[in-house]
């Protein structure tokens, strides 16, 4: 009996809250052009960052601090999961081997998924997507291997230092910017060295965006596969 009362009460509360939020949203009509800072970005993204994809330019260059924070968030997630599910000795929980199709398929597809992932984060400044989607695809490659094989584990001794190195790389790029251009996360490649100004829209353009995105891609890839690994292993109880 109580749960019915509770559910109806919940529905009423949520309707009122919904009505209130809708009233707020009505003040922000859908589809109108209310851009202020956005317009500035669109007009000067090509000149100031050399990237064609305005979103990635904003993500890495204009609002680089957010991305730095956001990379830390992912790093915290992987460390947190690692800390929480840490066991002295762990082994895979999988019991049944993947079917023949899965095993052979995954072995075949693994290198191509990796290549596709690297393609996404290298071309971050040109095509949609960037470090994060690229890293995610790399992680799915390892996920498939986990599903296929019972005893497969990612090479921890390689991945964890790689993760740290990639993160440090990102901050180092920022610090170099501080040293050269006296501003943290300053795009010294584009602003001071003016590399790749000529071939706008092609691979070697967009200042330090591709470098950062490769670092982010590696980092996200290793982190997500680390999370997958901690979730798919359990403690060895003597």
């Amino acid at each position: 009996m109580v749960s019915v009362l509770k559910r109806s009460l919940a529905i009423i509360t949520l309707l009122i809250i919904g009505y209130w939020l809708a009233q707020g949203l009505a003040g922000v009509p859908f589809g109108q052009d209310r851009m202020l800072v956005g317009k500035y970005y669109l007009e000067n993204v090509k000149a100031q960052t050399g990237a064609v994809n305005a979103v990635t330019a904003i993500v890495v260059n204009y609002r680089g601090f957010d991305t730095l924070g956001e990379v830390t968030v992912l790093f915290i997630a992987s460390t947190g999961v690692g800390a929480l599910l840490w066991r002295r000795k762990k082994r895979r929980t999988a019991k049944t081997e993947g079917s023949v199709v899965l095993r052979t398929g995954s072995e075949l597809l693994f290198p191509f998924i990796l290549m596709f992932g690297t393609y996404i984060f290298i071309h971050g400044h040109l095509t949609p997507g960037g470090g994060f989607p690229g890293g995610a695809t790399i992680a799915t490659a390892f996920l498939i291997l986990y599903m296929a094989f019972v005893d497969y584990e990612i090479p921890h001794r390689l991945f964890e230092p790689l993760e740290g190195l990639a993160g440090m790389g990102y901050v180092l790029v920022g610090l170099i910017g501080l040293a050269i251009g006296s501003y943290f996360l300053f795009d010294w490649i584009w602003q001071t060295w003016h590399w790749g100004a000529a071939n706008l829209g092609r691979l070697f353009s967009g200042g330090f965006i591709p470098i950062i995105y490769t670092l982010i891609g590696l980092k996200v890839g290793t982190e997500l596969s680390g999370i997958v690994d901690s979730m798919l292993t359990e403690e060895v109880r003597e």
């Binding site: 901050v171 610090l175 501080l178 943290f184």
Partner: peptide, 16 residues
């Protein structure tokens, strides 16, 4: 900005 960069870079250094 070192206030933010320093803890970050040292946190990433720990796995090494």
């Amino acid at each position: 900005s070192l206030l933010v960069a320093l803890p970050l870079i040292s946190a990433f250094f720990v796995p090494l």
